[in-house]
């Protein structure tokens, strides 16, 4: 981007901040397929989907002390029961996509953030109002610019990710190891 384009971009950025609505900043990292390659290399894995029943979800919630939002487990698995799960956790306001690798013994092999989303600015001041829009696809999604790839000064705690990993460890104990 040259200087003129960049200035135009700044003006556009300024103008867009005057619009009423939710602006969600998204940053995409590796894809689910790349995460599979990084964690399991060429190991053959096939897609799977499993629908948990209410009892299973309740037990996972009790044991992990974390809310189970989704009853569908999705990802890929190997013939020897290694898993890569496509999961979502909620950050401060928005969903964050995560790939979590689980070894056949139930230990965590790796965690990769796939897409990070976050809202900034005045539109997030009223959190209660914002919460009703969680994950709603009508939010305006702005990909971080090619030139400006980082945000400084937003030290967000990764506690939600830690809780999500804990939930998946208990999901393995309750469900995945028997699939």
């Amino acid at each position: 981007m040259n200087r003129r384009d960049f200035n135009r971009y700044l003006i556009a950025l300024g103008a867009s901040s005057l619009l009423i609505g939710q602006k969600v900043w998204a940053k995409s990292y590796i894809t689910f397929e790349q995460a599979k390659k990084i964690m399991w290399q060429d190991l053959e894995m096939v897609p799977f989907e499993y629908k948990m029943n209410k009892d299973q979800m309740k037990r996972i919630k009790e044991n992990s002390k974390t809310r189970v939002r989704n009853n569908v487990l999705k990802g890929v698995k190997s013939s020897s029961n290694d898993f890569l799960i496509a999961d979502q956790v909620i950050g401060k306001h928005e969903f964050i996509d995560v790939a979590v690798g689980i070894n056949s013994t139930g230990t965590i092999r790796g965690v990769e953030i796939l897409t990070y989303r976050e809202s900034y600015g005045d539109e997030v001041m009223n959190q209660k109002w914002r919460n009703q829009f969680l994950g709603v696809s009508s939010n305006e999604i702005l990909e971080l610019d090619d030139q400006i790839k980082n945000i400084s000064g937003a030290t967000m705690s990764c506690r939600h990710i830690t809780d999500g990993i804990n939930r998946l460890t208990h999901t393995w104990k309750e469900v995945l190891q028997y699939i």
Partner: peptide, 27 residues
């Protein structure tokens, strides 16, 4: 990089050194 200002809106800044740390109360 983007740095949130007092109103927590993101503003772009050019780096002045190789390292940068920002403390804000956003969270």
């Amino acid at each position: 990089v983007y740095i949130p200002n007092q109103n927590k809106n993101l503003k772009p800044y050019q780096l002045l050194r190789p390292g940068l740390a920002t403390s804000s109360g956003y969270y």
